[in-house]
Simulated assay, not measured.
Amino acid sequence: MNSFGQIFRLTSFGESHGRGIGGVIDGCPAGLEIDMEFIQRELNRRKPGQSKITTQRKEADQVEFLSGIFEGKTQGTPIGFIVWNKDQHSNDYNNLKDVFRPSHADYTYIQKYGSRDHRGGGRSSARETIARVVAGAIAKLLLKQQGIRIDAFVKKVGEVELEKSYKDLDLTQIDSNIVRCPDPAVADKMIARIEEAGRDRDTVGGVIQGVVQGVPAGLGEPVFNKLHADLGHAMLGINAVKGFEYGSGFEGTKLSGSDHNDIFVKTENGIRTKTNNSGGIQGGISNGEDIYFNVAFKPIATLLKEQQTVDRDSNQTVINPKGRHDPCVLPRAVPIVEAMAALVLADHYLLNKINQL
């Protein structure tokens, strides 16, 4: 399954150390003005080598559009694009050809396909998310016309956590530091924690929070394509993600129903709720309040230190991987979380338009 979405649909292709990563976007309405600089900025937020706390693989990640855009506007036809790989060090993976790296997809790919591309993980590499960011950027442009804004930021790195509500933060400051946390003091502590993991030749995980504002009431489906279920599906499909919660999430289980219920009130802006434990979604459908959610990322599995494992012949062996890897995936995953949220919201926006015909 290399496609995502029902109406606004992305099909991606490519491997980490292949010739390139690309995709085809189908279902994007005609006449949408395409801001190429914006799309490239989104890719730059994801690309490797952007700071001292990310992998030092050097890739320009320059997107090249092949179809579907003419004179700066979408044509309603499939939008094809590609980003060429330039800085592969495939030889770094030669010693891993016949061994299974702990917590990677090496073993499971062999079981499913009978073979695998060992160079950087092949199709299982997070480099595949380039296609998601390109498509997500176009989805953002579509949603922007409807007044919908999507932001994500690093909320937690290891034990270092941003305790403030997103409502008390200036979300325009997310990209003001290399870890993408809108609180400068907490950001410094997060950076120090990532640098510590790097010095130890280890990795560290954490949490990204996503916030979607300006969503009208009525997006989502009541049964099998509930809006929160599709968001969960999107987030859990990102490499290294281990958990998803929206609204009050797991903390809400500690409340009584009378404390958790969001009371409806009449305001100058129509019907609203006093609280938002529902996270902007009720019955699988948006209610007009902010949608907010948390995405948990594990410490990435590639460690630059010796580990025990087995090879394809079930022999015990030891690996000591080489290469260039992130000690923490979170700073580069922020635009990926935003992109996947945008794909879901754009899809449901278009689906809702069809339902209203």
Rank of each mutant, 00 (worst) to 15 (best):
N276Q: 04
S314P: 09
T317W: 09
L236H: 05
V265Y: 10
V204F: 04
S258D: 13
T317P: 09
S314C: 14
S256P: 10
I271Q: 11
N276W: 06
S256G: 14
T203D: 02
V207G: 04
T267A: 00
H233S: 11
D259W: 08
G198K: 11
H260I: 12
H228T: 13
I191P: 08
I319C: 06
K274W: 10
Q213V: 10
D290T: 02
F250N: 10
Q213I: 09
K274G: 11
R199C: 03
N277Q: 03
T302Y: 01
G232Q: 11
T275L: 12
A197Y: 05
V207H: 10
T309Q: 08
L304K: 12
G249Q: 07
M235K: 05
P299S: 05
G198V: 07
L219Y: 12
K298V: 13
I263T: 14
S278H: 15
G232F: 13
S248Y: 04
K298F: 08
R312Y: 12
H228E: 15
T267E: 02
A296N: 03
G284I: 05
M235H: 09
A197Q: 06
N320K: 08
D200S: 11
I291E: 06
L227H: 06
A240G: 03
G243Q: 05
G220F: 01
G270S: 05
F264E: 13
T309V: 09
G198T: 06
G270M: 01
I208K: 06
V310Q: 14
E221L: 07
Q213R: 13
T275P: 09
G220L: 00
P299G: 04
I238H: 12
G210S: 07
H228C: 11
I300N: 14
I300D: 12
S258V: 12
T253V: 15
L236T: 08
Q213M: 12
G243Y: 05
G288N: 00
T275W: 10
V207K: 02
L231W: 06
G206A: 00
T203Y: 01
G218D: 02
Y246E: 07
T309Y: 09
N269T: 14
N320L: 02
K266M: 15
N320T: 04
Q282G: 05
I263P: 07
G205E: 11
G252D: 01
E251W: 11
V310G: 05
T203F: 00
L303H: 11
I319L: 05
Q209I: 08
L219P: 05
V212T: 07
V241W: 06
H233E: 14
N239C: 10
L231T: 09
L303M: 11
T253H: 15
P321N: 01
D200Q: 13
S256R: 15
V204R: 04
E195I: 11
G214S: 03
G252W: 00
S248N: 04
G214V: 04
E195W: 03
H260D: 12
S258E: 14
M235S: 05
I208P: 09
N269G: 13
D202N: 15
S314T: 15
D230C: 10
D259L: 13
D290W: 00
P299E: 10
V241P: 10
A229R: 07
R199F: 07
N276M: 03
Q282F: 07
G283R: 02
Y246S: 11
F250E: 10
